[in-house]
Design a protein around this nucleic acid. Structure first.
Lengths: 211, 211
DNA sequence: TATTATACTGTATATATATTCAGTATAATA
DNA sequence: TATTATACTGAATATATATACAGTATAATA
């Protein structure tokens, strides 16, 4: 992205915004910027904000108070080589809950983005022992990549009627999916796509066990 | 810092705030929380916020819009130490090699130091399936803490005559150590400390599987 | 030279937002 | 049993805030 030249004064305003966020945890109002910068009119802040927005340094959420989002140029680069990203741990609630809803997030954990070779989107805490023979035990964290690109034999995270499960995936025919556990005590789950709802949450990428 | 117990619902609200900030860059209003949580009254959000404040999870800037600051217990720690350390992956070479010699280092991988709760010193690449029933599979990386402080039942990394092995540890008497596999196809290893050399490399702390 | 961008003051206002008050209901606790 | 914490609905309101409008002034373009 090409960012037009920022003027010294606009840079001051931009920095003042960054400092404000760092200190308070939320962005400033026009009035706050005025106080920091010594302006007497909120419109001084407003016009600076519009200029910064036009030049691509910030985005402004219309109508929202404190709706300033600093678009940090370095963030992209930073994130590529960065030490860690933060990934949510999602509890595998037995049934009835939308899987990735924020309320199911146990916590965020730092982890290098390329930790498992492939990229991934979240950690899922495993319940049950249906994948025991694949070395996936209760309370393990599996790194899940949100994707629909899965092959027969992949371990996937699937949802059938709000019930989330981790199993081997295979699709023997166009309207049938078989989810196979890695534990003789469990049976295969056969899904008839003509009559049943099936949603593929993602693909198993790696595993972490905290002992 | 002692934080009083958070209720499940309060945790939902807290997570919803965190997600909102992550997605928009600024904290939600009471109304925003209502939308996310499905409340019909802004006072529902308000009371939850006050409860979260009372319990020390957030602070609220009086009078300010979106004045919610998430006091992430882990954040301070997180931000300070979030830079990953570099840990060596050591190949579990069958025999004849001093374990931690540099020639056995496959590569260095970045990982947050507190990734497994306890600190650890290196990763060991597992060979064989002797710990299969404990969910430790071939080529898994186990995080090992160099220590001699192990209890019966711990999984340890031990060396007997230059041979390195991962097993359950138990010490039934002062001159006897038993290393027990988690796989019926393998037998216990009994070490007589009066006649055999035994070296405890460390303790199993956690596990990573790259798929 | 006319135009545009920058850099402000000052006033006004619709609305976004925090916050209080009045209730209802349930479960836990003393 | 009374009390407190939790978990809400619903309405009301003071004010915090974005944002538009009317100006002034300077420097840099076209």
């Amino acid at each position: 992205m090409i960012m037009k030249d920022i003027t010294p004064q606009q840079n001051k305003v931009l920095n003042c915004i960054k400092v404000y966020i760092k200190e308070t945890g939320f962005p400033p109002t026009r009035s706050d910027i005025c106080k920091e910068m010594g302006f007497r009119s909120p419109n001084s802040a407003e016009t600076h904000l519009r200029a910064l927005e036009k030049k691509g340094f910030i985005s402004i959420a219309s109508g929202a108070s404190r709706g300033i989002l600093v678009i940090d140029e370095e963030k992209g680069f930073y994130e590529e080589t960065a030490e860690t990203d933060s990934y949510p741990i999602i509890g595998l609630v037995a049934a009835g809950s939308p899987t990735l809803a924020s309320e199911n997030i146990e916590k965020q954990v730092p982890c290098p983005p390329n930790f498992f070779g492939s990229s991934f989107d979240y950690f899922l805490r495993v319940k049950g022992l249906s994948m025991k023979d694949a070395g996936i035990m209760e309370d393990d964290l599996i790194a899940v990549q949100k994707t629909h690109d899965v092959k027969n034999g992949d371990i996937v995270v699937a949802r059938i009627d709000d019930e989330v499960t981790v199993k081997y995936f295979s699709k023997p025919s166009s309207d049938k999916i078989v989810l196979e556990p890695a534990n003789d005590d469990f049976s295969d789950i056969e899904v008839d796509l003509r009559s049943e709802e099936f949603f593929l949450e993602g693909k198993y990428i790696g595993l972490i066990r905290e002992n």
